[in-house]
């Protein structure tokens, strides 16, 4: 005899009660968690937009007409458009080598790829100043040949690249490791060349994580502050990226302007999070709930 809906719900409730904390504790914990997150996440998020819109929508859009702001936007895009593709190639190459082959030192490689994440952004910029700055190793040689790296675009690109090196690799490596080599081996037995195997078999299997890696790498590249601050020289209209421009506007007490620019970067961050959620939905269509429906059969002794 099939169980009624109510009987089934009661079964589940009985089952869950064995491993749950009771409604009171549960809601208290939820309140605590949400309170913490509100304080540290939602409030700052809301503050960005609230401050940006203090002068109304007109004031908000006016902030973007400033030529220095526009120059900062251009520079940010330019730096990111150079740093991200380079790190993309690195990420794919490293993930292929690590996931499809066994070699000595593999674990070491996986570990050191994470180094830029542990290094303070100020140091990330400092090391390039030491190499290419006026008093740096290559400083005199560069001055001789009239090549500017520090306080110019190349330095900004280098610092940005350094800071975002690991992101794409970290997305791809665990995924490709879990996918194994069988499909690629199958493709080879069917006569595909190495390149054909990569483009037609491997790439489609990693495309969502690859996309997220690129978007995350881009968000971090556009938002990098400390490292770029060291190498840029803060020359308005020339070597200021968006985050640096935020700092300048803020220090000039142009709060609305600063927050307006900040809001652009915040929107970028939110887009990144949305993409991540969508990708997670795609790769794990149903987060299995822990209801052991099969266990409590109708009529069985409990």
């Amino acid at each position: 005899m099939p169980t009624t809906f109510a009987a089934k719900a009661k079964n589940e409730e009985w089952n869950a009660s064995l491993t749950s904390e009771g409604a009171l504790v549960r809601w208290a914990l939820i309140a605590l968690a949400l309170g913490y997150l509100t304080l540290f996440l939602f409030v700052p998020l809301a503050a960005v937009f609230a401050e940006a819109l203090k002068n109304g929508l007109a004031g908000y859009f006016a902030s973007f007409q400033d030529p220095d702001t526009l120059a900062a936007i251009r520079l940010t895009f330019l730096a990111a458009s150079l740093a991200v593709p380079l790190n993309l190639i690195f990420g794919v190459a490293a993930a292929w080598a690590i996931a499809k082959f066994e070699f000595v030192g593999k674990q070491i490689l996986i570990t050191i790829i994470d180094i830029p994440l542990a290094v303070s952004p100020v140091i990330s910029g400092l090391i390039y100043v030491l190499l290419f700055g006026a008093q740096g190793w290559l400083g005199p040689w560069l001055a001789e040949h009239d090549i500017k790296i520090i306080f110019a675009l190349p330095g900004i690109v280098l610092a940005t690249t350094f800071v975002t090196v690991p992101f794409i690799a970290r997305e791809l490596i665990p995924l490709m490791q879990s996918q194994g080599r069988e499909e690629e081996e199958a493709a080879l037995t069917l006569g595909a060349s190495g390149w054909q195997t990569f483009t037609r078999v491997t790439l489609p299997n990693i495309k969502w994580s690859l996309l997220y890696g690129v978007i995350l790498c881009n968000a971090r590249a556009m938002g990098e502050f400390g490292a770029v601050s060291v190498v840029s020289g803060h020359i308005r209209g020339l070597t200021n990226t968006l985050p640096l421009h935020v700092e300048i506007l803020y220090n000039e007490y142009n709060a609305v302007g600063a927050f307006a620019v900040a809001s652009l970067l915040t929107l970028l961050a939110i887009v990144t999070l949305v993409v991540k959620t969508l990708i997670e939905r795609k790769s794990a269509p149903s987060r299995a709930t822990q209801d052991p429906e099969w266990r409590m059969q109708p009529g069985s002794p409990s």
């Binding site: 996440l41 935020v246 709060a255 600063a258 999070l273």
Partner: peptide, 23 residues
Amino acid sequence: VDALVDLPFALPTAVAGIALTAI
């Protein structure tokens, strides 16, 4: 909420800085 937990990871540090100061 789950998605937003990653916000400090994705948000530029300068933006976080001025937002927190303002609050």
